[in-house]
Amino acid sequence: MGLIGRKASAEALRQHAADEETARRLPELLEAARQAEHAFHEAQRDDPEADTPEVRRLSAALDTALTDAMRAAYAKQRALIGPRGYDDRIYRRKRSARPEVKEVTSLAESLLTLRERHRLHGPGGVLREPVA
């Protein structure tokens, strides 16, 4: 059977439904990340050298918010590709070239970069020393 008549598997349909549900939350998760970032930077601005429990708590909240938003963006990417994309790599690759998928992919990668930069530089805004 060729690719034209191929249907998505039951597991792919289940994963797609879960990704659509997660993707619906993307706007609220992006707003939560913005708020967490604002609160973290406000605390840092008040005392840039402080490594207080409050700054660490806000740093962890920012990390969590960025992670949740990034996961939702990747879920939206998979949802836009469609259920066949879970089973068929060629179909997934072709659908990944669509402008709306590229836009969401760019957002997800930006969120990943922000999270990793935050993890590397930590609450104090300086590169953490590697653990020996």
Score class of each variant (00 low, 15 high):
Glu28Gln: 12
His16Gln: 15
Arg89Gln: 13
Ser96Glu: 14
Glu28Ala: 14
Asp47Arg: 07
Ala61Tyr: 05
Thr22Ala: 15
Arg98Gly: 04
Lys94Ile: 10
Gln15Glu: 13
Arg34Ile: 00
Leu29Met: 09
Lys102Arg: 15
Glu21Arg: 15
Val55Glu: 00
Ala32Ile: 00
Ala12Thr: 12
Glu21Ser: 11
Pro99Thr: 07
Glu31Gln: 11
Met1Asp: 14
Gly122Ile: 04
Leu29Val: 04
Ala10Glu: 14
Ala23Ser: 03
Tyr86Ser: 06
Glu20Ser: 04
Ala97Arg: 15
Gln15Ile: 02
Arg57Gln: 11
Thr52Asn: 03
Gly82Arg: 11
Tyr74Glu: 13
Gly122Trp: 07
Arg84Thr: 05
Asp47Pro: 02
Ser96Pro: 06
Leu114His: 10
Arg78Ala: 15
Glu116Asn: 11
Ala72Asn: 08
Ala61Lys: 14
Glu21Ala: 14
Tyr74Gln: 10
Arg128Trp: 06
Arg78Thr: 06
Leu13Val: 02
Pro83Cys: 05
Leu111Glu: 05
Gly5Ala: 09
Glu54Gly: 04
Ala61His: 11
Arg57Ile: 01
Gly82Val: 08
Pro83Gln: 10
Lys76His: 13
Leu107His: 07
Val55Lys: 05
Asp88Cys: 05
Ala17Arg: 15
Asp88Gln: 10
Glu103Ser: 14
Gly124Met: 11
Ser96Arg: 14
Ala23Pro: 02
Leu58Pro: 02
Gln44Lys: 09
Ala10Tyr: 07
Arg95Tyr: 06
Arg119Asn: 03
Ala60Phe: 01
Ala75Met: 03
Lys102Cys: 07
Thr22Val: 10
Lys7Tyr: 00
Leu58His: 03
Arg57Leu: 03
Ala65Met: 09
Leu80Asp: 04
Glu100Arg: 08
Ala33Lys: 01
Arg34Thr: 02
Glu103Gly: 12
Arg6Cys: 06
Ile90Pro: 01
Thr67Arg: 12
Arg25Lys: 14
Arg89Trp: 07
Thr105Phe: 09
Glu103Asn: 11
Ala43Met: 02
Arg78Gln: 14
Asp87Thr: 07
Pro27Asn: 08
Gly122Asp: 07
Tyr74Lys: 10
Pro53Cys: 00
Val104Ala: 13
His118Gly: 00
Glu49Asn: 06
Glu103Ala: 15
Pro83Thr: 04
Arg45Gln: 09
Thr105Glu: 14
Leu107Asn: 08
Ala32Asn: 05
Gly5Ile: 02
Glu100Leu: 04
Leu66Asn: 02
Gly122His: 07
Glu42Val: 03
His16Thr: 08
Ala10Gln: 14
Ala79Leu: 05
Leu66Lys: 07
Leu127Met: 12
Gln77Met: 12
Glu116Phe: 05
Thr52Asp: 05
Arg119Gln: 11
Gly2Val: 00
Ala39Thr: 00
